[in-house]
Design a protein around this nucleic acid. Sequence first.
DNA 1: TTTATTCATCGTAATATTGCAATATAATAA
DNA 2: TTATTATATTGCAATATTACGATGAATAAA
Lengths: 109, 109
Amino acid sequence: MGLAKTEIFTDSQNEIATFAKVFGHPARVAILQYLFELNTCVCGDLVNEIGLAQPTISQHLKELKQLGLIKGTIEGTSVCYCIDTDNWAKMKRIMNAFLDQDLSKNDCC
Amino acid sequence: MGLAKTEIFTDSQNEIATFAKVFGHPARVAILQYLFELNTCVCGDLVNEIGLAQPTISQHLKELKQLGLIKGTIEGTSVCYCIDTDNWAKMKRIMNAFLDQDLSKNDCC
DNA sequence: TTTATTCATCGTAATATTGCAATATAATAA
DNA sequence: TTATTATATTGCAATATTACGATGAATAAA
């Protein structure tokens, strides 16, 4: 089917999966790491930095933007993309709550 | 194409994406949360707990096992699945290094 | 041995994802 | 106005993912 049955899971579970999914492609990981390194940046830099075609980068940027993790401001003919620090912090709290589950009582096997 | 160009990214970027990808489905999030809650568990419990067919759960468990995040020990006709705490801790370090990137210098927009 | 029980695997249909060429759009420069 | 530059969108081919029925394999119970 290729279609996840999201309706049978909690909002929290779906939210974690949605954030994780966007990190589930190395191009988006690379884009985010590059944005963290720089203060200023444009899409064109990313096309040169990462070896993917311009439409492909644009598509990955769109997905990151839809989740609110990055924001883009138009500057002339180019677009300045950067991390949305507030939303990044919110996402981090959600992901950490999932990753930091208690390991101590897990000793059955 | 549906095929990620992993060869143009670093091992670290691919590793992060691989871990993130496995968390990118709510069923696998739900399975892991359930395994964290319990000390003992079998696949059958998961089929009842989560509303997916037994082959589907088995498939998701396989993906988690391939990444080393869970391990399963055969107990008679059933299988006891649980978190692999060592590998979970390793994964957490890798994901946290990615999530905890420095936000302070990011102030261009 | 026969019969359940439990889980894994196979095969397959439906849908999603990835990547890019071609093209559109929008702002600036000449 | 007419380029030029930078990014977005469209359309599509190749591949991946999700879900599940059918079936297989292994153990336990009768």
